[in-house]
Design a protein around this nucleic acid. Sequence first.
DNA 1: GCAAGGGTAATCATCTGACGTCTTTGCGCA
DNA 2: TGCGCAAAGACGTCAGATGATTACCCTTGC
Lengths: 241, 241
Amino acid sequence: MSANDRIINAVVTMITDGDLQPGDRLPPEAELAVRVGTSRGSLREAVRVLAYLGILDVRVGDGTYVTSLDGPSLLRGLGLIGHVATDKTALEIFEIRRILEAAATEKAAINITDDEVAELEDVVAQLAAETDGERFVELDMRFHNLIAAASGNAALRELVASFSVQTQRARLMQGRFVDGILEQSRAEHEAIFRHIKAGQPALAAAAATAHVANVEHWLRQAHDEARAADASAADRHREHG
Amino acid sequence: MSANDRIINAVVTMITDGDLQPGDRLPPEAELAVRVGTSRGSLREAVRVLAYLGILDVRVGDGTYVTSLDGPSLLRGLGLIGHVATDKTALEIFEIRRILEAAATEKAAINITDDEVAELEDVVAQLAAETDGERFVELDMRFHNLIAAASGNAALRELVASFSVQTQRARLMQGRFVDGILEQSRAEHEAIFRHIKAGQPALAAAAATAHVANVEHWLRQAHDEARAADASAADRHREHG
DNA sequence: GCAAGGGTAATCATCTGACGTCTTTGCGCA
DNA sequence: TGCGCAAAGACGTCAGATGATTACCCTTGC
C-alpha cells in the first residue's frame, strides 16, 4: 500500500472512530505529517484527494476542516464522470439516470412544496417559449434539477445531477433532430409537471421514465449516425488515398 | 481557481478533446509539469486526484496511463462515502440503495444467465446454513453483488456496491435483533432469488424493495436505540458527576 | 465603551532540488 | 535461442524555502 493510501485511511479512520467530527479542524499540515510519519508533500496529496471527494475542506491561510459530510458534499466529486466516460459507459449511465430520475420525480410528486411548484411552473413556461438550443438545454437542466431538489433527498438530488451532464445534452442539440426533439421534450416536460402538481407519483414517475428513455433514444440515434458518418469519411479517405 | 483545479481541467480537457484516449500514456511528470506551467509537486497532487477518481492509472517505474474510462473504474472512488457519511445522510443513501437495488434486481431477472443462477443458488444455500453474524454479512454482500452483476449494467453494479457498505450491515449485526434479522433476511433472499430464477422482473423488484426497506427499518431502530442508550448514559453521568 | 484600522502570526500554496525504489528494456553471454 | 544482469527511465518520497492569504489581536480614534 502506498503512503498515500495509508494517509487517506488514517484520516478516514479518525473520522469513523469519531476522533474527527464534522466541522473539526485538522492539525496543520506540518504537524499532521509528522504524526502520521510522512512528509508534508505526501500528506498534501492525500489531503487533496479527500478535499476533492468532499470530505475535507481546505481554507487558505486558515486550516483544513472536516466538511459537514452530507450527501451533496460527498457526491460532488462525481461531476467528472459524465465528462470522461466512453460512449458505452455513457449509455449505462443514462440508464441509471433514468432510474434515479424516475424515483426523484415520484418523490417530488409527494413532497413538493407550493413554492417549488410555482418555480417549476415558471421554468416550464420559459421552456415553452424558448427556441435557442443552448438556452433550452440550460432550462432543461434547471427543470430536472428543481424536481430532484423537490424530492426531499439531497443525496439523490446531487447524484441525479452528477449523471445528467450538460455535455451529452449539448451533443444532442448539435444533431439535426433539433426541431422534433424540442417539441416533444416540451410536451413531456409539461406532462411531468402536470402529474407532479396533481400529486400523482406513479404517473409522474412513468412520464419521467418515458422522457429520459426518449432522450436516450435520440442520443443513440445521433451516436449511430455520427459513427456512420465517420465510417463513410474513412471509406472515402481510403478510396482517395 | 487554484493551480490544482487548473491542472485537473487541463488533463480532463485533453481526454474530452480526444488528445488522450483510454490506454494512452501521459508524458512523464516532469515534462507534463513544464507543459502545463507548474511544478512537479502540484502536478502530482492533481494526478493523484484523477487516479483516485479512476481516470488515471499510475504505475510505478513505468508511467501514468489513462484508464479504460468504464463505469466501474470511474465509480470506484465512491467507496469512501458510506464510511464517512453522517447518520442523516446514511438514511438518504439507504433510500438510494433501495431504488438502485430494485432496478438491478429487476434487470437481473431479465438478463441473468444459467451460470449466474447456479452461482446465486449456491450463495442462497450457504446463507440458509450460516449462523455466524460476520460470515452472514459477507455472504449477504456477495448475494447482492451477484445480482447487481447479473443486471448487465456494469456501472449500476459498481454504484450499488458503493452504496452498500459493509460498515452499516456490520453495525446492524451488533444489535440485539440478530436472530430475527437473520431469519427474515434468509426468507427474503430466497424470495428474491425465486423471482429472479422464474424470470419475474416485477416480483423480483418488489421483493428487493421490501428487503432493503426492512434492513433500513432495522437500522433505524438500532440507531434510535443506540441514541437512547447514549442519552441514558449521559444522564447517569450528569447525576453522578 | 465601541468600532475601525493596521500589524503580526499562523496556515496553506507553490517551487526547487535531491535521492530512493521500482519497472522496463536491451545488451551480453552461455 | 534463451537467460541473466545492468542501465535507464519513471514514479515515490523527502527536505527546505518562499510567497500568498487569512485570522486574530492590538492600537487608535471617536
